[in-house]
Amino acid sequence: MTRWHAGLREAAIIALSASVFGFVYTGIMRKGLFAEGYSQESAVSRPGSPSTIIHVDEARELYESGRALFIDARHPFEFAMGHIPNAINIPLGEFEKRESQIDSLPRDKVLVTYCDGVQCNSSIGLAARLREAGFQNVQIFFGGWNEWQARNLPITKSMQ
C-alpha cells in the first residue's frame, strides 16, 4: 500500500503548491477572483450580453400585469414537474431546433427567462440567444423557479 500512501502524499504537495501559485498569480496579475469589478454577477454573465436581471418581486409584478411571457430554460421534464403559469419551455440546448417557435414569440411583450435559480445560468444563456435573435426586451429572473416556489406564487403542473 506504500504506492497509494506515496501517491496521496505527493498529490497533496502538488495540490497545495498549485493553490498557492494560483492565488498568488491571480492576485499579482489582478485576474479572476482579484480582477477589478469581480462580483458574483460578473462570474455568471457573459461579456457582450447586457442582461437585465430582475428580482422575484419584479417578476411577480410582470406576471400579474400580464405584460410578460415567461420562458422556462430548464429540461422539459423539470418543466412538466411544475412551472410558472402560462410559461413556455425552451431548453437552452434546443434553441436551434425551436426556430419556428422562437420566430412566433410575441414582440410586444417582455420576455422573462428563468431556470432553477442561482445555481444555473441557462436563463442568462437563453436571454443572450433571444437578444441575438432580435428580441429587444428580454429580462432574466435569476432567482428562478426556486425563488418563485419559495414565495408560494402560483404554479402549474403538466405532469399526470
Binding site: 495540490a15 498549485a18 493553490s19 494560483g22 492565488f23 491571480t26 479572476g32 477572483l33 469581480y38 458574483q40 462570474a43 455568471v44 442561482v118 445555481q119 444555473c120 445560468n121
Partner: peptide
Amino acid sequence: TGTPAMVLATVL
C-alpha cells in the same frame, strides 16, 4: 457556479 467556480478556475 459563481465564486466556487472562480476558485476552481484559479487552482485547477
